[in-house]
Design a protein around this nucleic acid. Structure first.
Lengths: 240, 240
DNA sequence: CCGTGTGAATTAATTCACAGCG
DNA sequence: CGCTGTGAATTAATTCACACGG
């Protein structure tokens, strides 16, 4: 089985439709609509919804235009209706069974995260390679051996796997997930995963996010003064 | 104090230099270089490093070209040298003091996450509004009242704050962080934060990531057949 | 009128392809 | 030679600005 190529093409096969940048914002709109709905708002303008979602209204309208024409000119959008349409487009009108591998601190937090359940995902199994964890019950689900992965995937029709192991274990976990038939992986381990074409990987990397903030913070600290790159010099330790 | 405007301009003031997309990849390169370094590799080509970082070599070279000319034609890059240059550019040659607010499951996981310490960040305080948590010591740091925020920020010169509270508390926490002088926020709460200009917010949202995967997964499930949008119909429950 | 939906214009990001240096 | 660094070409994302319909 050839899986040397590092993953490219996050959007796989049949993605010639909604731009990737739009797809990434749809869940944000969905959440904003849920908020408006809970606040009792029946109708909203693109301006209103855009503010709630933290984007500008032109972009919101452009994004929504990829889904269809769900608004009413001169009026705005029906909150419930639009919410349903977006949920359907994303695919969270159904429930997705999810398996989490790696039940350390982060795995615990993920297992207990109520947002999964309420947003279209159901954690059907928690797996860990460490036998000492197999005693535990986390969030009402008992921790099982990693070797149960394939059986669980088949039993529940799991299509999405979450990796919250330490970095060194992540590639092996990913390989087993792919072998078991999982084609979408959310990776919290700070490592680049290689997967065959057709498998989507998204990564959430805490220290990368902090480093991006640090970059901008550093820029701010430089103040309005001398923002330019160090004029020359800075060649400390240049190799021969 | 006017802070109605939802945040735009993630890159603030003095960011007319390296493209945002490049900045977001620099930490990935940094990690890949650390890996190569630990493996004893002294020199690498753009091809080699790009593979390790999960990007293509043209993009890597273009990204690095924004920092300067740190390679040797016909040879490649000196791993240690390039690593230092990127770390310096990001600003992680120094240590950034960080405060974490909200010590629930996720806050625990973050406080214990060793990757922060080893990548240029130092957790100087853990804060929680719930007095019952003030007994605890997490990762060697004791949990203090949220009201200590301003004192801690000033004492340690904290520039970066992490929010891992439930969604309803997040905006209030952000407001206090901004008031205390924090200008970079990493938000794990599933909510859109409004902050004044000059403050950077990055968000990490677990269910959004899963929803993006679900979208693509749904597309795959449709198979090669009928990939087009439902030809018409699908107007279930269209409002009057 | 007012606000959606959308072509056109702009800006950003990525990829190509090769000149030029070590 | 081989690989970097980079202009030029391409593709994607965002913003503008306004025609159009309720």
């Amino acid at each position: 089985m050839e899986s040397t190529e590092v993953t490219e093409r996050t959007p796989s096969e049949a993605s010639r439709d909604i731009p990737e940048a739009t797809v990434a914002r749809l869940p944000v709109y969905l959440r904003a609509l849920t908020g408006l709905s809970e606040a009792g708002t029946a109708t909203c303008s693109s301006e209103h919804l855009a503010t709630a979602a933290g984007v500008n209204s032109a972009m919101l309208r452009k994004d929504l235009s990829h889904l269809g024409s769900y608004g009413t000119r001169g009026v705005g959008y029906d909150v419930e209706y639009l919410r349903y349409q977006i949920a359907r487009e994303i695919g969270v009108t159904q429930d997705w069974p999810v398996v989490i591998v790696g039940i350390g601190n982060l795995g615990h937090a993920l297992a207990n995260f109520s947002g999964f359940r309420s947003r279209g995902f159901r954690v059907v199994a928690l797996l860990d390679a460490d036998p000492r964890r197999h005693q535990e019950v986390v969030a009402g689900v008992d921790v099982r051996p990693f070797s149960d992965l394939e059986a669980i995937v088949h039993e529940h029709g799991v299509a999405i796997g979450v990796i919250s192991t330490p970095a060194p274990a992540a590639q092996d976990v990913a390989d087993h997930m792919v072998a078991a038939g999982i084609r979408s992986i959310l990776n919290f381990a700070p490592t680049v995963l290689a997967v065959p074409p057709g498998v989507d990987v998204r990564k959430v990397d805490l220290s990368i996010e902090l480093q991006i903030l640090a970059y901008h913070e550093q820029r701010k600290a430089l103040g309005a003064a001398a923002v330019e790159r160090p004029v020359d010099g800075a060649l400390e330790g240049r190799p021969a």
